[in-house]
Design a protein around this nucleic acid. Sequence first.
DNA 1: GACCAGGAAGAGT
DNA 2: ACTCTTCATGGT
Length: 282
Amino acid sequence: MPTMTLSSDQQFSLDSTLGCGQVFRWDRTDDGWWYGVVGRRVIRIRQEGMQIIFHGAPGSFIKNYFSLDLDIIPILTSIDHDPFIHTAITQCAGLRLIRQPKWECLISYICSTNSNIPTIRRRIASIAERFGKTIDFEGKTYFTFPEPSSISCRGFEDLTECRLGYRQPYVFDTSCSVTDEKCWEETIDRLPFEDARKELMKMKGVGPKAADCILLFAFQKYESFPVDVWIRRIMREHYLPDLPGNAPLTTREYDTIRSFARNHFGNYCGFAQEYLYAAREG
DNA sequence: GACCAGGAAGAGT
DNA sequence: ACTCTTCATGGT
């Protein structure tokens, strides 16, 4: 079984990283193993102190996926500007931002709107099960996340079983437009942040929040600061107590919150967002 | 049944 | 550019 030894200044917690809600296709067994599908691979991985034990992918792949090449200490230092974020950083020590497959991330966050994490997970699993390819791994069957064309070439109705609700046309429509435009990832990647954001929001079902998540989790745009109901609550309570009334989140308030965060936490405010989110409710 | 969850689109102003 | 309504699902 391949292993990797973390260096002493290389903070990493597998449980925080896979359990914080940034990815939806990993499961932890009672004995501490995580199983996940990434691209065409099934990966089994666990952590024992400074040792990472894994199977299903080369070490270089693991290192890149979990962004273990990134020097995280200076990044955390750069966002550690107040006692509240300091507590979150301490609480979720070793949380890393994963480099997610872009297409899967796009659909995942289209499926995430106005939902909770268990429901989102079920939707993604259902899409993979019905449209992906099977992979046999250690006697069990897993499913890849389907290519855009695998969804778009089938009828709209085939998605109904996935129970996406009002998101079904968004997923289908985005699958069609991405099937047509092969190099959308390059386009997004090359653009400066605000332009990339606008470009993503042209896709059906992608608003400000989903765009920010996709930019953060799939494109490593660390200046992104997604604002969901939890983050909004936390920011209003601890950083922006003077914001008016508790009405539905408007575009203006969203922008107020994210520009505050960008100023307060700096260019790596996306890390701050994920630590605050992971440390929510407790 | 009401209310909530990693919101967004569309219509009407 | 802003406000309001509607959207489908599953859990508490």
